[in-house]
Simulated scan of single mutants.
Amino acid sequence: MHKNFKGIEKTVYGRGSFNQLGEILAPKRVENEQYFVFIVDQYFKGKDLEVRVPAEGKDLVYFIDVDVHEPTTEQIDTLRDEILAKQGLPSGVVGIGGGSVMDIAKALSLMLTNEGSSTLYQGLNLVKVPGVYHVGVPTISGTGAEVSMTAVLTGPVKKLGLKCEWTVFNQVVLDPELIASVPTDWWFYTGMDTYIHCVESENGRFNNAYSHAFAEQAMKLCRDIYLGENAGQNAENDDKLMVASLMGGLSLTYSEVGVCHALSYGLSKILGTRHCYANCLIMNHLEDYYPEGVAEFKEMVKRFNVTLPQGLAKDWDDETITKMAHVSYNLPHMWLHAIGENWQETITIDLLKDLFRRL
C-alpha cells in the first residue's frame, strides 16, 4: 500500500510574511465561536514578536514554556478542557514557536473536537474527527514539525504522535526573519535534526525517488549552511534552513526515520532530553549504521566547536537503560525501515541497551 498523505493546504514564504498572518486568519474568524487561540513560545514574552501577534477581541493567547518539558498528553488535555470551558470551540489554533509549539498546536486542534484523553489517539489514524483550522508559524527551523502529519506527545505509557492527515497544518507561515534570534547551540541542534531526518530517510527500505528528491536538496542546503564557504548563522543561511527543514520533513513523510530517532524517543521519554539535542547525542555514536552520515555530522560538529558530552551512560543504572531500550524497541515502523522485515532478529533489548551505553 502506497502512502497517500495530505500536504499543507497553503504556504506563504518570505521575509516579513509574518505580517500577513492577521489577513490570513480574517476569513476564518466567522467560524465556531469566532475567536482564535494563539500558542506562543514563552521565549517571546516581552519581546517585539509579542506585540505583533494579531490577537483580537476574544482571542486567547497562551505563552508556553517548552524548556520545562516536551509536549505531554496531560498538557494537551488540560489546555483543551480549559479553552472549551472558557469560550467554547474556537475558529482555529495558531502555533508560533519551535517544534514543541508546533506539536502542541496540532494536537490541540485535534483534541478540541475529539472526546477523551489524547492518550487514546497516540498512534496512526486513531483520530475520529477532523480538528479545527490550525496554522503553524515556526520560529526555529529543523524539526520539520511545520510540515509533518505527526504531533508528538509524551504520555504516561509511551512517547508517540497523534498521526493522521488531519494533523497537518492548514496553513504555514515561513518567515526567515523569525529564526534570526535562535541561540547558536539550538540553531545547530535543530538544523542537525533536519540533516538526520534526511540521512535516515535515505538509508532504509522505504526510500524512493519521491523522498530522495526532497532529502537530496535538503542535505545540499545543510551542507551549504554548516560546511560551505559562508557557513554560519546569517540571513542567507536562515532562508536556506527554513526551506531545508520543510523539505526534510517532506522526505521523512514519504519515507521514515530510523535508528537515531528510535533511540532518541527512548532518551526523551525516560530522561526528558530535548528531541533535537538527543538526536545529536545519539548520532555521534552510530557509525556502524550510518557511516557516511555520521562522518559528515562530525565534520559539522567540529566546524562549529560544538561539544557533545561523553560518558553520560556511566550515571544511568541498568533499570533506566532497560526502560529506554523498551521505549525504543516499541517503534516497529522505524526499525522496519532501518533494518528490514526481519528486524527483530537483529534488534534486541540487549542490543539497544548496548547502544545506549555508548553514550
Rank of each mutant, 00 (worst) to 15 (best):
Y13W: 13
E23A: 13
L355I: 05
A278S: 15
G7T: 11
N203M: 11
T113E: 08
V132M: 12
F36A: 00
D41L: 07
D81R: 11
V132S: 10
I282R: 04
A145S: 15
K314S: 12
S251Q: 08
S255Y: 08
H134M: 12
W166G: 02
M324K: 01
V243Y: 13
H69Y: 12
I140Q: 04
D354P: 01
D175I: 01
I349W: 01
I282A: 05
M219T: 09
C280R: 07
D239G: 01
V12F: 13
P71V: 11
F169Q: 03
D175F: 06
H2A: 14
E31V: 07
R274Q: 15
M111C: 11
S201L: 10
T346V: 14
A151Q: 07
Y195M: 06
G161S: 08
R223M: 10
I104Y: 15
D224G: 01
F188L: 06
S100W: 04
L174M: 15
G232S: 04
D317R: 09
D354H: 10
E31T: 06
D318M: 11
H134K: 15
K302E: 15
L286D: 01
T154L: 08
V61L: 10
G131T: 11
A244S: 03
D288V: 10
E345S: 15
G293A: 09
A218W: 02
V132D: 04
I8W: 03
P54H: 04
G293H: 07
E82R: 12
I225D: 00
K158L: 09
Q34W: 00
S109V: 06
S328L: 03
L281P: 02
E341F: 13
A107P: 02
F18R: 00
G98A: 06
G7Q: 11
V68L: 14
F18M: 05
L267E: 00
W316K: 04
N342D: 15
S109H: 04
L355M: 10
T346C: 09
V53Y: 06
F5Q: 02
L174E: 08
A26K: 08
T253D: 13
S211K: 07
D318F: 10
L355C: 02
K220R: 12
N125H: 13
S117Y: 07
L336H: 13
I321M: 05
T273W: 06
V257G: 00
L126E: 08
D350F: 05
E256C: 11
F38D: 05
Q42E: 14
Y195R: 01
E345C: 07
K128L: 14
S245E: 08
Q122K: 07
K163L: 14
D81I: 08
E82G: 06
V306N: 03
K163N: 15
C260W: 05
S141Q: 05
D318Y: 05
N342A: 14
P27V: 03
L79K: 04
M324L: 08
M242P: 00
W187T: 05
P138H: 02
